[in-house]
Computed example of a mutant assay.
Amino acid sequence: MTAPKHQVQWFVTGQGAVLQASAPVDDPGARTYVRYEASRPVDLDTLYALEERFATFRARSDKGTGALLVLLGVAAVGVVAGWLVLPWLGVSDDVAGTLLVASAVVLALAFLASAVLPGLVRRHVERMYVDSGLVSAVPRALRRTQAEELVAAPGTAAGHVSLM
């Protein structure tokens, strides 16, 4: 696991606005704020659960991406072996042709998957945010002064700082 790079803190204002503050671990003073629109009242526990679901999904997604890259590499090696290496070594054309065709099919399917998966991942992440009561996974950036006013307003609940 890589070392955390950002400190993240959630805020829910008395009016129901959801803010997220983020800062690099090595420079906590360089805080940036974003605002998520909420479709229903959201509490901090819901936001922590969203954070946890997102981290779990990201870890699974990273493993899947690694597996897809390995599959692409193996298929590319199979294409090269079936097309160039095996015929050069004098292996029968049937074996070389079978390896070439099978590897080319796997390579084509892996490329197709690499084109389709990003959209599926975006939709899944969007669904996680919507299920948590937020309108979208895409926040709106806030000026620091505006965000600090919202955070300082009465009724604002501040969450703990988590490392990501």
Rank of each mutant, 00 (worst) to 15 (best):
A17M: 10
V18R: 04
L19A: 07
Q20C: 13
S22G: 13
S22R: 15
S22E: 14
A23G: 11
P24A: 11
P24H: 09
P24V: 08
P24F: 09
D27L: 09
P28L: 05
A30K: 14
A30G: 13
T32C: 08
T32K: 11
T32I: 05
T32E: 13
V34L: 02
Y36E: 06
E37W: 06
S39T: 15
S39L: 09
S39W: 00
R40S: 14
V42C: 04
V42T: 07
V42I: 08
V42R: 01
D45I: 00
T46L: 07
T46Q: 15
L47A: 06
A49W: 04
A49P: 10
R53S: 14
R53W: 04
A55C: 07
T56I: 09
R58F: 10
R58A: 14
A59L: 11
K63N: 10
G64D: 11
A67C: 09
L68F: 02
L68V: 08
V70H: 09
V70I: 14
V70D: 10
L71R: 03
L72E: 10
L72F: 07
G73Q: 07
A75P: 11
A76F: 07
V77T: 10
V77S: 11
V77C: 09
G78M: 01
V79I: 15
V79L: 02
V80F: 11
G82L: 00
W83F: 07
W83Q: 02
L84D: 12
V85T: 13
L86N: 02
W88N: 08
L89Y: 01
G90S: 03
D93Q: 14
D93C: 00
A96E: 01
A96L: 03
A96Y: 01
G97Y: 00
G97W: 03
T98N: 05
L99M: 06
L100Y: 03
A102E: 01
A104Q: 04
A104G: 10
V105S: 06
L107N: 01
L107D: 04
L107F: 15
L107C: 08
A108Q: 04
A110R: 05
A110E: 06
F111W: 14
